[in-house]
Design a binder for these strands. Structure first.
Lengths: 336, 336
DNA sequence: CTGTTAGCGCTTTCAG
DNA sequence: CTGAAAGCGCTAACAG
């Protein structure tokens, strides 16, 4: 492949020393404007771009950050984190190196090792759904942040969706639309998401003088279908707050089976805002968007802060809970 | 942050010269096994990992490849390409640097520049749906491959889904199940995918002595809904071959509206295998999977080949069409 | 079998 | 205002 021009080539072509070229490009140093312009022109002419690998070696700053997540597929979540991270990185003059450990812890450690050997300035450690973790020791060797997982210690900053806000917002929204018989389609697993959403649902219901009722199901369409059937069989329900959009999709199918019209006979709220599902359903599914993009952005910004205040070894960090916006579509009707 | 140990530190600790350490780690050179083991042990002890940035500077080989795509979100496609690329890269001792140009051509050029300044050994240029492109000039300056887009020149190798095979497989599958009145729900846009699938559909139908009928709609659920209504109104149809799963989802909704049972009254085949949709629909949607993962894998393998045979400047490359497997679920019934 | 050394491309101090 | 030179961490040719 054609070699890229080096700083030497530019210096020679511009009839100056390499130091001058370096200064001119960095906008530093004192030199005649004429010289500066000439150097810049020559550099542009030759298509010169500094070798950032050499510069990183010198500076001990690569301007590369690593992003490792358990798996980049099946859901658009990872995509949004990545997109957010990439966008923010561009802004900050950084570049992202991605690694996907297929959720194997040894791969994970190897990946941290590799990233470190590339001298990344920091690492974003992202999980694909909100969970509790212990921070991998390798992360403590350099600036790092955690996305969509809550570390059990305060060793590193983290950001997660605000699960209680999700539950509260969804429930209030239905209450505000005049519903009283709102049942929550929850899941069995003991996760921050299931606990938080349920807890907020229950307390908002009680605060409004309504009676909470939770029906459990698998966290997929089939589970939503089954749970909806049970919910409707076992008591009155004019609205469903589903753990996620997939279950909401199942609720639609169950409603169809029962000859119920959404939203006239049954209102539904989901969580996730899976565009592919929520926007495609008829009527569109009102849901709460998980702020993966924003978490990606926050992660690089926080990392950047951590990078240049060169954190004191035993800092204490917060786990931020970030609000999830409601995305209104047509699946909720006002009850009069 | 704690400095990583350098090769000097290891040499000192092991009481040898840095060259010996380098050799020991590389498994090269001649030295006593005792020395080698000791060096290795010391290195492990100190948690030493070679600075790959220094090594890249020396070798003029970074073992980093760049991946730029128009947008990493909304669809799981990009995720699968990335995952494939990452997995194959790990295998090959490479690492991936991702960039997402939000489809802005200037961002794109800047991204190529940045990747080159990081001395990437090659670039994967991925589009998020099959289209025709002219290869960006910046890509010709280094090894590169194109994913999910067909370059109008043969300057670089590319890989795309085999659109005609998709049309042929879907159609034959329905024919084999005894259907004759198969209508194709197509889209208006003039794309390789719409053209190829339609063309194969028509010729397979004719070859079987059946009459092709195409109904157009928007490429989303609403479009599929509308198109299905029209298809069923304007003529006989026992099966639908939909341009994508989203339209298939619309077909389900239309069938429900008309009181038609899938698959008893109407069989449906989609394309994309959007897990979130196809597996969640009731009954599960039979569809063809777009091999994004495999394209990602192929891309790094092809890149690796290109990297070490150091391609002659004016090579001619092929655009590969890769087969898309049928994913059978329950949306197709045998017609007797 | 082991050590010395030049140099990858860049930045920056220090002399001129 | 400009240039020479040291050195970031590593590799590999060469000398011992």
């Amino acid at each position: 492949m054609p070699h890229q021009p080096t700083i030497h080539a530019v210096a020679e072509a511009a009839q100056v020393s390499i130091a001058t070229v370096s200064y001119a490009l960095a906008g530093k140093g004192n030199m005649s404007n004429a010289t500066r312009e000439r150097v810049l022109a020559v550099a542009a002419e030759l298509g010169y771009a500094p070798n950032r690998i050499a510069s990183a070696l010198r500076h001990r700053r690569s301007h590369v950050i690593g992003l490792v997540n358990d798996t980049i597929s099946t859901t658009p979540f990872a995509g949004h984190v990545l997109l957010g991270a990439n966008t923010a990185a561009s802004q900050a003059g950084l570049v992202v190196m991605t690694m996907s450990t297929n959720d194997e812890p040894d791969t994970e450690d190897r990946d941290f090792e590799i990233l470190r050997s590339y001298q990344v300035d920091g690492i974003i450690y992202a999980k694909m759904f909100h969970q509790e973790i212990t921070v991998p020791p390798a992360l403590l060797k350099l600036p790092s942040v955690i996305v969509d997982a809550a570390p059990s210690t305060r060793e590193r900053p983290a950001i997660v969706p605000d699960e209680e806000q999700i539950g509260a917002t969804a429930t209030s929204y239905l209450l505000d639309h005049g519903h009283r018989d709102i049942v929550h389609l929850g899941i069995d697993a003991n996760l921050p998401s299931s606990r938080g959403r349920r807890k907020a649902y229950e307390s908002v219901m009680r605060a409004a003088g309504a009676t909470p009722r939770v029906v459990h199901g698998e966290s997929n369409a089939q589970g939503g279908y089954d749970a909806t059937l049970r919910a409707l069989r076992d008591g009155p329900a004019t609205a469903l707050f589903c753990f996620n959009d997939q279950m909401g999709m199942g609720a639609y199918a169950a409603a169809a089976t029962l000859g119920l019209d959404i939203p006239r006979d049954l209102s539904v709220v989901g969580v996730d805002n899976l565009e592919l599902v929520a926007a495609a359903l008829r009527p569109g599914l009102t849901t709460l968007r998980l702020p993966h993009y924003e978490m990606g952005v926050w992660a690089v910004e926080e990392l950047a802060r951590q990078m240049d205040r060169d954190p004191s070894p035993a800092d204490q960090f917060e786990t931020l809970a970030i609000a999830c916006p409601l995305v209104e579509r047509e699946s909720v009707a006002r009850r009069t």
